[in-house]
């Protein structure tokens, strides 16, 4: 009882925030993920290892998708804006991998991505290389439609990777921006 009284007194003096329990560590998901190298929007090889020391927000999509993909990109950009306001944007690297290398060439990604103002790395490559990376992250995608007008059925999770490149959390495409910002903070 005396101990509790002392604790409460300490809280009073130090400030209540200091006495709140620390957020729990995000568990490492060792069933998904791993290193990979694809081609970035400058046409150069880019590997996950290039982001060591930075938290990575990784997601897949394609730029011809009008509904979910631009919305996800815009939400990731909002996360970056929040982190920039907190002085932490440099510690986080958003990475977008296309399912659609035929239309999403390095040149197209270079023209498309800067509009979001989030320093997003855009990655493309051969069909086989992209499929291999997707499989590592448990991402499924299936092309359908005509040769000149096709779409993809795909899973659309967003992956939070820590500074060692390990998967720490998955989010749905319509993730809560504050949740991701808070989770990123726990990994910095």
């Amino acid at each position: 009882m005396q101990l509790l009284a002392r604790f409460l007194t300490l809280c009073w003096f130090v400030g209540l925030a200091a006495c709140e329990p620390a957020p729990p560590d995000l568990p490492v998901n060792d069933r998904l993920g791993g290193d990979f190298t694809l081609t970035d929007q400058d046409g150069r090889p880019w590997g996950l290892g290039d982001a060591r020391g930075r938290v990575v927000i990784l997601f897949f999509g394609y730029t011809h998708c009008p509904d979910i993909c631009p919305a996800t990109l815009a939400r990731v950009a909002q996360v970056q804006r929040h982190l920039r306001e907190q002085g932490a944007a440099g510690a986080v690297q958003p990475v977008f991998i296309t399912f659609d290398p035929q239309r999403d060439t390095a040149q197209h990604l270079k023209a498309y991505l800067p509009w979001f103002k989030a320093d997003i790395i855009g990655l493309t490559g051969s069909d086989a290389d992209i499929r291999a990376v997707a499989q590592r992250y448990g991402v499924v995608f299936l092309k359908s439609g005509a040769a000149d007008r096709y779409d993809f059925t795909h899973s659309d999770f967003i992956y939070l990777l820590d500074a060692q490149g390990r998967v720490r959390k998955l989010y749905p495409a319509d993730f809560n921006i504050d949740e991701v910002v808070n989770d990123v903070q726990t990994l910095l």
Partner: peptide
């Protein structure tokens, strides 16, 4: 309409 980059081929 959702705003998209000027090089976007589609809009929703």
């Amino acid at each position: 309409l959702r705003a998209v980059p000027p090089v976007s081929p589609t809009m929703a």
